[in-house]
Amino acid sequence: MSRPPVYRPSMRGWWQRHPAYRRYLLREGSSALLAAYALWLLAGLVSLAAGEAAYERWRELHGNPWVFGVHLAALLAALYHAVTWFRLLPLTLPALRWGGRRITDRTLVRGAWLTYVALSVGVWLYLLGGVR
């Protein structure tokens, strides 16, 4: 006797099924804006190589309210992406121990943020020194 047919559910509208899926799409989607910003910077580099006039044109584009809006969105996306990235960081690491005790996720995330802030301040100071 053949087995009765099974019903195979579809994935249509899967992201509407739970907020966790929408948070995931938002997290992954924020990287698209980051990629767009990287391309924008690349365009700046290319125009710099093309000469002063091209570079000035690229700089002038920043005055456009649309370009400003996209930059603001990219900044927010970068911040959101950083927060989620650091939050997920402990999941990618093996269990780490310090003096026989396991380092908690919270300590790891705080350590990562501290390193990030320290490096950012370092780059900032370096750039300030360069301007002077």
Partner: peptide, 14 residues
Amino acid sequence: ALDHFPIQRDLVID
């Protein structure tokens, strides 16, 4: 029935 699995009968998945 649990999502993402073929359904055999009511709430029973394969």
